[in-house]
Design a protein around this nucleic acid. Structure first.
Lengths: 359, 359
DNA sequence: TTGAAAGCGCTAACAC
DNA sequence: GTGTTAGCGCTTTCAA
């Protein structure tokens, strides 16, 4: 209330020149209190008189003060920062997960920072971005969410041992991982196989299985799904990695062997597109000559010319649940122990049926 | 060489438990020197006796010491960290730029950190991720590369005023920006228009222009290209933003007016795909009834079923040149002043001709 | 060439 | 309630 402060000298916010950012000390001086009191006010300290709190808040506003996160992190060790480490920038799929996780975390009042885990080394190989990880470690986040499969995940052991970690949309778990949240591949592949059988398919080939734990998981799901449906010899696996090239090769082998199946189940949408291209290049029409399904329900699959039947993993829910799992253990305060570990949350997917699998 | 150090007590690297990371003090003690000397050794100090340097290096290795970046940044103000701020995670296009920039920076021995600038607020709107920006600012990078159009760019003014900034693949420049590196839209659109005219097109509509500076730049390029080629009334603009929905609406207006042109030039590949879908839904075949071109040459355009003629902006080169521009001013040491500002580097694109524009 | 000491901006006991 | 005093891990004068 004390109106009429003679403070108009200092401009309220921007000073034009790159003036040094105000520190807690400046605020203390401006408010006529000690550093600690300012710190208290900004950290929700209960025991501060209303009058001083206002003085501090006003002084801070006048100066445009904002706490320095780096200093906070250095000083206090733990901080309310939660890091989201996203596997790579190439897959828009992850963006949905990140957005959902971040949004849930913000609701809970937690700060987050989003950084990339992976980088193409010159040769196009994707490797762990150690610089980024180092910064992340030194920032001492109070929690970590990884999104997507991260190369050389074991190198993060140091980090995951020190920081409660939730793995989203990957099977990278280490012994320290708090929880893994991912789509239920058994259910997803099951939906696909049921749908295909419903469409009259009797011989079905799965293309995928190489190139990572997720790919392998989907292969296993396919094998058990097919067995459960009594597909017998009608079900086969043609190994391929996640890439378009791999899928193309796999189709090549099928064509060469003269054994084009009724349907092909692929490990993801990108593979599916490659499979469709390869089939059509070989003169096999899709879906007439062979039905094809994808996985992930990316924007690709909805394009009319592609119109790909695909499994929607509900990425927003994956992100949300990952955040939830982390919030459950990474309370801003409270030495929450013992931490439950190794929980696996499987999100039930849905099947989006489109033209590539229906005649 | 001094073999036989009696140091086997402490395990070389991992200690199993999340033991606190060793600090410079630990190293100093282990090596029997002062903190300052350790710091000197790790910062390429010239005047350190070879013997002590080795002692320090060995001690550090034995302890698994790595300098704490956060502490460094806090202490010294400037640091050799260069930040790459990528507009959003949805656009794989940016991943190429980031990878190229990072790779060039690594070659030059600079540390980099890659973080995301933007986040969907709950409503699907993309807004500036202020948390991330705050961390970035407090880390005091010695240079900044932004990739792609960043929402609320002006809020970064504080940052860009303090840190040499290069803008890649956007037109976000402020008065402080060191350089902007982007594709030459005049050249790109020029290639498209020439190609289309070569294919016999006489009436051409540009779809785009709304939703950002890049979109606007491409519209201007279209108008001037068309004028230069004497297209006259054959050239028109149908306003739309970057989204698929916008493109669909624009096509709807064209169809409703009964004036389907010989060709449609779109602002990017995503729009192009939406345009094709909308045309075909209305019974107009592509390319037979109307040719369509995209921009960016994303992976989309190479899919056979899409086969989209598109402008390849040479993203890797954009990334590399952005890094180069930054390196030119952000020397790790040296108070490089005065900084040249406002330079604009236009990268010449190429046209990738595919089925969507050829009959 | 090396070490002591101050300080980056902040938090966290601990006193007053 | 509020201020004092130590640090967090590191860099950087300034002496020695």
């Amino acid at each position: 209330m004390t109106e009429g402060h003679e403070a108009d000298a200092k401009a309220p916010v921007a000073a034009g020149a790159p003036a040094k950012a105000p520190t807690i000390r400046d605020v203390a001086r401006e408010a006529g209190v000690s550093k600690s009191l300012v710190s208290l006010v900004f950290n929700g300290g209960e025991n501060v008189s209303e009058e001083r709190r206002q003085r501090v808040l006003h002084a801070a506003a006048r100066l445009g003060y904002r706490p320095n996160l780096v200093a906070q992190s250095l000083s206090s060790g733990r901080r309310d920062l939660i890091a989201i480490l996203v596997s790579n920038l190439h897959n828009p799929l992850f963006a949905d997960i990140v957005a959902a996780a971040k949004s849930r975390l913000s609701e809970a009042g937690r700060r987050t920072m989003i950084i990339s885990a992976q980088v193409d080394d010159g040769s196009g190989e994707r490797v762990l971005d150690r610089d980024n990880i180092a910064v992340l470690r030194d920032l001492r986040p109070s929690g970590l969410i990884t999104v997507g499969t991260i190369p050389d995940f074991e190198e993060l052991a140091e980090l995951t041992a020190a920081v409660p970690t939730v793995v989203a949309s990957a099977i990278d778990a280490t012994s320290d991982t708090v929880a893994t949240v991912r789509v239920d591949d058994d259910a997803g592949i099951g939906l696909v196989v049921d749908h295909l059988i419903g469409q009259g398919a009797r011989s079905i080939v799965f293309i995928g299985g190489d190139g990572g734990t997720v790919s392998a998981s989907r292969e296993r799901a396919f094998i058990s799904s097919a067995a459960r449906r009594g597909l017998g010899a009608g079900a086969r696996v043609e190994r391929a990695d996640f890439t378009q090239a791999g899928a193309r090769l796999a189709v090549g082998r099928l064509i060469a062997a003269g054994s084009v199946p009724d349907a092909i189940v692929t490990v993801n949408d990108l593979s599916a597109v490659a499979v469709i291209s390869a089939l059509e290049a070989a003169g096999v029409a899709v879906p007439a000559g062979c039905r094809v399904t994808g996985y992930d329900d990316t924007t690709l699959s909805a394009i009319p010319r592609i119109s790909l039947t695909s499994v929607d993993p509900d990425n927003r829910r994956i992100g949300r649940e990952a955040a939830e799992a982390l919030l459950a253990v990474a309370a801003p305060e409270a030495g929450v122990d013992p931490i439950p570990r190794g929980r696996e949350v499987l999100i039930p997917p849905t099947l989006v049926v489109r033209g590539s699998s229906t005649v």
